[in-house]
Every structure is written in structure tokens, then in C-alpha cells.
Design a protein around this nucleic acid. Structure first.
Length: 876
RNA sequence: GGGGAUAUAGCUCAGCUGGUUAGAGCGCUUCGCUCACAUCGAAGAGGUCGGGGGUUCGAGUCCCUCUAUCCCCACCA
């Protein structure tokens, strides 16, 4: 123990332990005799090959719960979300391809996949390594739970089942198209951002010029695809010309004027140009009015051959040129500035183009109903509760979900087309030939939305559709931890698919957290460059510090800011914990372990054990309620303030004394409290607690499998704890007096404590503490003021008055000021309590307990006031 | 347009089912390197809990309202 350095070296400990844990398999589920399943499922975050703060928060919260549950005797299974079809990994892979000079258009899909798998594993593995540095205990080595094996089967199976039920269909709809990624997107994947654009007003004239109609648009380039102009059926202004034609300016094409309820009479000119191929509302109008669909934009964002003279231009170029041409033709009525919400791709942030396209869709309404019911009926609970509103709001207004993607990464759609007869076959395994005509078939080139497959995570990772042992044992799982930004993408879909495929909820609790922002409260983002690399923080301050700072000081569901100072203070706490252990180990001496004998305990021992009991109960309760921050705060305060600042100091006089029995008792208490404190702290700070725990006598193989501290009835010492608190009050009062009057710390004095007769005995016993902690040379306890030297300083506190004969040090003016301040305080308190007690309805209606407490407070304050006033009188 | 959140010490935030003289960390002031720890210890200053109503014996905590800021969803060209 002598060779323990003075300050804690997290680098050494964390590096050593994480290697050891990996070797010993401690990162994996611990065996447990009770066989109570408890599973935490982790999300497929946007892994970029690099850990970011969002992950760190996610993983930390999950791991805190996992470790706590494990120590409480539950079996835990922590599934990695990192190997799934996460989008950003694909980005990484595409980057890799670019580096190797591979163009994804040039290579065959199968060949690509093979290489991509290899990269995927490499990058995924790197992430898991980083998570382990954070202390996160995930089961990466379960190869069969990876996407290509188990998950693909699950996804295919569910897809086919939904298809057979008619809930998945293929058709031409308006979808969101990302011209950058060249794929369709679901509504959820579109992010709207406000952009300053213009509103162009364009006049469409009658073929013979006898009438005209003006429409406004934010996307003039879509004029190329106009197939009608619409007005409201009851709009008298246009009633006469409905059914007639107008000519599209510049292009010269004639289109009809139609009437549809969708148009609002009072907005703009009351007339709208209709482009069914490029706007969802226009598409609907087109269906109702039987309009042709004319798509003028290609997949990569260029105007196609239907654009005539404009073909080959980008949408942006086309807009500029067409507007100029319309202006030249005299049909541009006006241009006004306009702010408009423009949809962008949540992945690449390119402006998405709504366009008509043949895609696969899920009919969500029938699937949403049971999913809503599961939450409404309380079978699934959101923590904090308010997020169920977000969930309902989305689920109740859900629309068909576009699930096909033209990406390179993902589960391939199990649909097979026959070019000969046009038959489509949907089944899990590829048919050898077309079941209808026997001709060869080809599989759909598209893959599924990553969130479609992620939605099956709770059971696809457990082997579904095979009825594996894991599936039977762990499904339904219990707790899901994720950020609120992922509720729609993932949580809602898991609930839907869980109920659909398994007939059971996937988990019973969704613990929702906020996002980590930078010091200014801004979202961390690549473009701002304000992201903070968790690994750098770990390197500098340690994983334990990072974890603790992420868990403490903020409540569930709320965003948090990342502060370097906060991590620093967590680091300081590590050092504190380390040094407290160092102190205990240095003093345990040879032989180590000592039995805790209740009969030998001193007042201070009983106090700290009593407090330990309370903290164990409260922290356990907080953890069960998912109030992780409250648990962390209580454990922190207990260790730092009560154990380190008070108990260790209280222990010293007896530890350094010559009474062997006393020493043994103190050592036993120190050991017990420290051991339990390490266990309580372990979920929050896994590395340092493991390290220190293993050094303690009586430690088991690892703290991870140690039992969570329990409430111990034998440690209930309310009376002694109360006396101890009183003594602490006395010590504080003396310290205050010494500090305020600038009494030199070295100046020790013979003090006299005057207190009520019933406290004399206990206070006498505790006098060694006053000597040690308040700088007393000797302490006398008595019920009256006999024998106290004239003009001694006096410190007044709730249960006693302490006299200190340091007459020569007295500065009358200062002392008067100090006492006046205290008098003020006491008077305030008396006024408050009297006010309450003189209120008849308070006395009549408030609970007995509260009234008694108020009377007690009043009593104490009055006692203090009279002593203080008397003292003031003595000072003249 | 619909839904939600937040407003508490200089800063960042806690405060569980209404009852403490309203807490923490950082910052600030004054002391102190006493043999676990200066990544420390001791003492202290600092808040009419956004404004206004209401319920209650009692409200930071419940209800209404106003103001400010933020988020999500939907979206009228």
C-alpha cells in the first residue's frame, strides 16, 4: 500500500482493466441464479467509425443500468447496435471505396457486398473497441447476430408476411428523392430547414388571349411538368373558365383549368399550377381530376428529355433560365422574397426533390393501431412519461412508409420479377424460375430502409425466425435506452414489428435521454466543427470521469451541455475516492480484514453506518425509478462529504490512539463503508471502483459480480446518528467562530460546552472529536456556565453554547458584528415559525408531524436567540 | 396550424408523490501545504425559484393566464 502514488492514474487502471475484462469475458452477461431476464437493447446509432458524444451518453446510461441490474442479481444481455445497417457506416465504406478508386457504378453488387462486409466488420470492431474503453459491456462476438446471418432472415420473413397480408405493396407514389444519395427517403428522413427563396408569380394565358390566370410557385422549374392549373370549385372569379385551357408560357403546351377543393380561395391568386409528378398534393389532385403525370426530373437531379430545350440542365440551372425566358416573354408578373421550408436529406442535407417513383411501401395504419394500444394500455412505458405524447402524435397521423432504397448497403428486397410474363414473386428464398411461366427471374435491385431492418433488432438479433433459446429467454426484453431524436425512426418501428412478428411487445420501458450540446448550447455537428471526441476526453480525464459527468447533474429527457469543467470535477472526485481508499488501505495494516462487531462501535461509527443504510436505500430506489442523476448525486455526496470530510476525520483520533479494540472497530467500519461505497459507485465509475475494490480485503473476483449493497437493519442507529449530527453542529459553530474572528489555526484552547443535561453524557464521549476537528486543547461539558472565564468567546449553535477562553484575541467590534448576524438569522427563523404556528388553520389541518417539527424549530431558535442576546449584552 | 419543453444563485443545472431556514458543480471572497488527497481542507458571500392570478393551513413543487426562448410534427402553391 505504501507504494500507492498520491494521485490517481486513470490511464494505467483503465487500460489494464479493460484488457483484463475482455480476456476474462467480463464484458458479457454474468450468470445468475435467479434467471430473471433483464435485457438492455442498444440502438444502431449513426456510427461513423468514430465514437461521438451521443454514443458516449447512450452507452453510459445503458451500462450504468446494466451494471446495476447485474449486481442486483439479474441476468443482463446487452446487444450491440453497432453492426447493423447503420447509414453512416455506409458513408464510411463509400469513403473507403473512393480511397481505393472504386466507383460503385462499376462494380457488381455481389462483389461490392463481399468487400463491404469485410470493411463493415473492421469499422464495427473499431467502434466496439472504443465502447469498451468507455467501460461499456457489449457482446460483440456474437457473430451470428450480425446482419448477414440472423437479421437477414428475420427481415425477409417479416417482409414476406406483411406482403402476404397486403400490408406491403409496390406502386407509383410521390416520394422524397435525394439527388445526392440517389435514393428514395421516407418522410421521417426528411429534415426541413427554412430557406430564403422567392415566390414567382407567372401568368398563364388563354390560347386566344381572351383570359388569363396567374399562379405563384416556389419551384418554377416544375412548370415543365405542369399538367393543369387548379382553382377552387366555388371560386366565382374563375367559374367561367374552368374546363378551358391555358398555355404554359414559353413552352406553349396547353393544359386544362380544373376545379379541386384542395385549392384555397383566399391564398394568393386562388389559382395553383398542378405538377402531379413533383408534389404530393398535386399528385392527389391529379388522381382526382384524371391528369397525366409528367416527370421532368431524372434521378440525379437533371431535367430529362421531357424538358425539351431545358433537358440536361440541373434543376437549379433550369430554374434560372426558365424564369428569364418567362420574363422575356412578358409572363412574369412579379417576384417576391419568400421564406420557405425546404426539405433536405437528413444524411447529406441536399435538397430533396419530391417526385413520383415506383417504390415499396408499408401500409402503416393497421400496424400502428396495436402499437398505440400497447403504450396507451401501459404495457410499454416511456421515461419520462411525456414522450408518449410525441409517440402518439406521430403514430396517430402516420402515413404509408416508403421502405425501398436505391443504396448499396442493406437488406435486399425479397421480390423477384419475371421479365417474360411480368409476374412478381415475393418469398424468402429466390425461386429457381418464374412460378407462372417458368422463365428466369431477377431480384429487385433495391434494398430496405435501414430502419425497417433496425425495427426488428429486439428479435432478429436473438435468432428469429428460428425459435432459439435466446429468443425464448430474452424476448420480450425489458429496457430500451435511446435519445428522443430516435423515437420515430426506431422505437416506434420496433414496437410495430415486435407486435406484428412476435405478437408481443419488444420491451416494457423506453428510457429517453436528450442530446449532448456544446458549451454554448449548440448541437454538436461536423459543419460547426464543435464536436468533442470522447476518446480524447477519456485520454485526458478518464472514462470514469466522462461517464460520471454525463450521468450527473441533468435529468432524463433533457438536453445537456458538455463542460470540460464538469469532467474535471468528476476527475477530482476520482482522485478523492482513490485517496480515501489509500487512506483506508494504509491504515488497515497487516492482517487486513476485520470483523464488524456491533457492540464495539462508537457514536461516529454508528452515524456513518446509519447514513450508509439511508444512502443504499435511496440510491437503489432512484436507480429503480431511472433517476440516475439523483442516485449519482447521493452517492457522490455520501462519499465526499460524509465519508471523506467527516468520518475519516472522526476516525483519526481513535485510529492513532492506543486502544487496540477501538482501532479494530474503526478499521472494520472504514472497510465496510468503503467497500459498499465502491459497489454503489461501480455502475457510474466502473474502472476505479473495480481497481480499488480488488485491493480491499475480502474482495471477490470482480466487483461486477459482487452483490449490490442491501439495507441492513442492524445499522439502524437513529439516536446515535442524531447526537453525532448535533456534535457536528457544535464543531461547525466553533470553526465558524474561529474563521470569522481570524483565530490562528494553531491556537488551541480549553473549551467548555454548555448543553442540556440529557446531552451531557453523549457530548462528553464525543469530546475527542471537538479536540481534533475544532482545535480544542481540552473539552469540558456541563449544564451551566460555572467556571467559565470572564469574556470568553462563545459560539452558539442549536444544541449547545461553546465557550472559548481566548480573551486576548477578542476584537469586540468584529465579535459584535458576527453575533448580530446570527441574531438576525435566529429572529428570521422565529418569525417564520411563529407565523405558521399562530395560524389556527395550520394547527388544525396540518399533520401532527409537521406541527411538532415547527414547534421544535421555534424552540431551538428561541434558545439560540436568548443566548445570543445575552452574549451581545455582555460585550457591552 | 397541432403537440411538447424550458424559464431556480454570476454560469451550467438538480430539486421524487406540495411541508428543509431552496441545493450541487464551476466561478467569487477569506484563511490554511496538520503525516489520504492542493485534482485538497475550513469558513463565507450570492436566489422575492420569469410576471400575474387561483387552489390549499401551506406551492419552486398543483391549476389558469401572460411573457420569453427552444424543440418536434404538419405545411398554402
Amino acid at each position: 500500500m505504501q507504494d500507492m502514488p498520491k494521485s490517481y492514474d486513470h490511464t494505467d487502471v483503465e487500460t489494464r482493466l479493460y484488457q483484463k475484462w475482455e480476456q476474462n469475458g467480463y464484458f458479457h452477461a454474468a450468470p445468475n441464479p435467479h434467471k430473471q431476464p433483464y435485457t438492455i437493447v442498444i440502438p444502431p446509432p449513426n456510427i461513423t467509425g468514430k465514437l461521438h458524444m451521443g454514443h458516449a451518453l447512450d452507452e453510459t446510461l445503458q451500462d450504468v443500468l446494466t451494471r446495476y441490474k447485474r449486481m442486483s442479481g439479474y441476468e443482463t444481455l446487452w446487444l450491440p447496435g453497432t453492426d447493423h445497417a447503420s447509414i453512416a457506416t455506409e458513408v464510411k465504406i463509400v469513403e473507403q471505396m473512393a480511397k481505393e478508386g472504386i466507383d460503385k457504378r462499376d462494380i457488381g453488387r455481389e462483389a461490392f457486398l463481399e468487400r463491404a462486409w469485410a470493411w463493415k466488420k473492421e469499422y464495427g470492431g473499431a467502434i466496439v473497441g472504443q465502447l469498451k474503453k468507455l467501460g461499456a459491456s457489449c457482446d460483440w462476438d456474437r457473430e451470428r447476430f450480425t446482419m448477414d446471418e440472423g437479421c437477414n432472415k428475420a427481415v425477409t420473413k417479416v417482409f414476406c408476411e406483411l406482403y402476404d397480408k397486403g400490408l406491403i405493396y409496390r406502386g407509383d407514389r410521390i416520394i422524397n428523392w435525394c439527388p445526392e444519395c440517389k435514393t428514395a427517403l421516407s418522410d421521417a428522413e426528411v429534415e426541413y430547414e427554412e430557406q430564403d427563396t422567392s415566390l414567382w408569380h407567372v401568368r398563364y394565358d388563354a390560347p386566344d388571349g381572351s383570359y388569363s390566370i396567374t399562379v405563384a410557385t416556389t419551384r418554377p422549374e416544375t412548370i415543365l411538368g405542369d399538367t393543369a392549373v387548379a382553382v377552387h370549385p366555388e371560386d366565382e372569379r374563375y367559374a367561367a373558365i374552368v374546363g378551358k385551357n391555358v398555355v404554359i408560357p414559353v413552352l406553349g403546351r396547353e393544359i386544362p383549368i380544373v376545379a379541386d377543393e384542395y385549392v384555397e380561395k383566399d391564398f394568393g391568386t386562388g389559382a395553383v399550377k398542378i405538377t402531379p409528378a413533383h408534389d404530393p398534393n398535386d399528385f392527389e389532385v391529379g388522381v382526382r381530376c384524371g391528369l397525366p403525370v409528367m416527370r421532368v426530373l431524372s434521378d440525379d437531379g437533371y431535367i430529362n428529355e421531357l424538358g425539351g430545350a431545358y433537358a440536361g440542365l440541373t434543376a437549379k440551372e433550369c430554374r434560372k433560365k426558365l424564369v428569364a425566358d418567362i420574363d422575356a416573354a412578358g409572363n412574369l408578373v412579379k417576384v417576391e422574397p419568400y421564406t420557405h421550408n425546404v426539405g433536405t436529406c437528413y444524411r447529406c442535407h441536399a435538397t430533396v426533390e419530391p417526385l413520383v417513383s415506383k417504390q415499396w411501401f408499408v401500409d402503416m395504419k393497421p400496424l400502428a393501431r396495436p402499437a398505440i394500444e400497447a403504450v396507451r394500455g401501459g404495457r410499454i412505458r416511456f421515461v419520462p412519461e411525456r414522450f408518449d405524447k410525441t409517440y402518439f402524435n406521430w403514430m396517430e397521423n402516420i402515413r404509408d412508409w416508403c421502405i425501398s432504397r436505391q443504396l448499396w448497403w442493406g437488406h435486399r428486397i425479397p421480390a423477384y420479377y419475371c421479365d417474360a410474363c411480368g409476374e412478381t414473386t415475393v418469398q424468402p428464398a429466390a425461386p429457381a424460375a418464374c412460378p407462372k411461366c417458368g422463365a428466369p427471374v431477377r431480384q429487385d435491385e433495391d434494398v430496405l430502409d435501414t430502419w425497417f431492418s433496425s425495427g426488428m433488432w429486439p428479435f432478429s438479433t436473438l435468432g428469429f425466425p428460428a425459435q432459439t433459446e435466446e429468443l425464448k429467454y430474452f424476448y420480450p426484453t425489458s429496457t430500451l435506452v435511446t435519445g428522443y431524436d430516435i423515437i420515430f425512426f426506431w422505437v416506434a418501428r420496433m414496437i410495430v414489428f415486435g407486435l406484428e412478428a412476435m405478437g408481443e411487445i419488444p420491451f416494457d420501458t423506453v428510457y429517453v435521454h436528450g442530446i449532448v450540446r456544446d458549451e454554448q448550447g449548440r448541437k454538436m455537428s461536423k459543419s460547426l466543427g464543435n464536436g468533442i471526441d470522447p476518446l480524447e476526453i477519456i485520454r485526458e480525464y478518464g472514462a470514469d470521469s466522462l461517464r460520471f459527468s454525463l450521468v450527473s447533474g441533468n435529468s432524463a429527457g433533457n438536453d445537456m451541455r458538455f463542460y470540460g469543467k464538469k469532467v474535471e470535477s468528476a476527475r477530482n472526485f476520482c482522485n478523492k475516492v482513490y485517496n480515501a481508499s489509500r487512506f483506508v488501505l494504509m491504515n488497515l495494516g497487516e492482517g487486513g480484514s476485520c470483523e464488524l462487531e456491533l457492540s464495539k462501535l462508537d457514536m461516529a461509527d454508528k452515524w456513518i453506518l446509519h447514513r450508509l443504510n439511508t444512502v443504499v436505500q435511496e440510491a437503489t430506489h432512484n436507480l429503480d425509478q431511472f433517476d440516475l442523476n439523483l442516485a449519482a448525486q447521493k452517492i457522490y455526496d455520501f462519499i465526499w462529504t460524509e465519508f471523506c470530510d467527516w468520518y475519516i476525520e472522526l476516525a483519526k483520533p481513535r485510529l492513532y490512539g492506543d486502544d487496540a479494540a477501538e482501532q479494530a472497530a474503526v478499521k472494520a467500519v472504514l472497510l465496510r463503508v468503503l467497500t459498499d461505497a465502491m459497489k454503489l459507485l461501480h455502475p457510474f465509475m466502473p474502472f476505479i471502483t473495480e481497481e480499488l475494490y480488488l485491493n480491499l480485503p475480502g474482495a471477490e473476483e470482480t466487483i461486477m459480480r459482487a452483490a449490490w449493497p442491501q439495507y441492513t437493519p442492524a445499522f439502524e442507529f437513529p439516536a446515535e446518528a442524531d447526537t453525532m449530527e448535533r456534535m457536528m453542529g457544535v464543531i461547525r459553530a466553533i470553526r465558524n467562530l474561529r474563521a470569522e474572528l481570524n483565530v490562528p489555526p494553531a491556537k488551541r484552547a480549553a473549551m467548555t460546552i454548555v448543553t442540556a443535561p440529557e446531552h451531557i453524557h453523549a457530548f462528553e464521549q464525543a469530546s475527542i472529536y471537538v479536540m481534533r476537528l475544532a482545535g480544542a486543547q481540552s473539552v469540558r461539558v456541563q449544564a451551566n456556565k460555572a467556571g467559565i472565564p470572564q469574556g470568553a468567546l462563545s459560539a452558539v449553535c442549536e444544541s449547545a453554547e461553546v465557550f472559548i477562553p481566548l480573551n486576548e484575541l477578542i476584537d469586540i467590534e468584529k465579535e459584535r458584528e458576527r453575533i448580530a448576524k446570527e441574531v438576525e438569522k435566529a429572529r428570521g427563523e422565529i418569525e417564520r415559525a411563529e407565523g405558521k404556528l399562530s395560524n389556527e388553520s395550520f394547527v388544525a389541518k396540518a399533520p401532527e408531524k409537521i406541527i411538532l417539527a415547527e414547534r421544535e424549530k421555534l424552540e431551538v431558535a428561541r434558545g439560540m436567540l436568548s443566548k445570543l442576546e445575552q452574549r451581545l449584552g455582555e460585550l457591552g
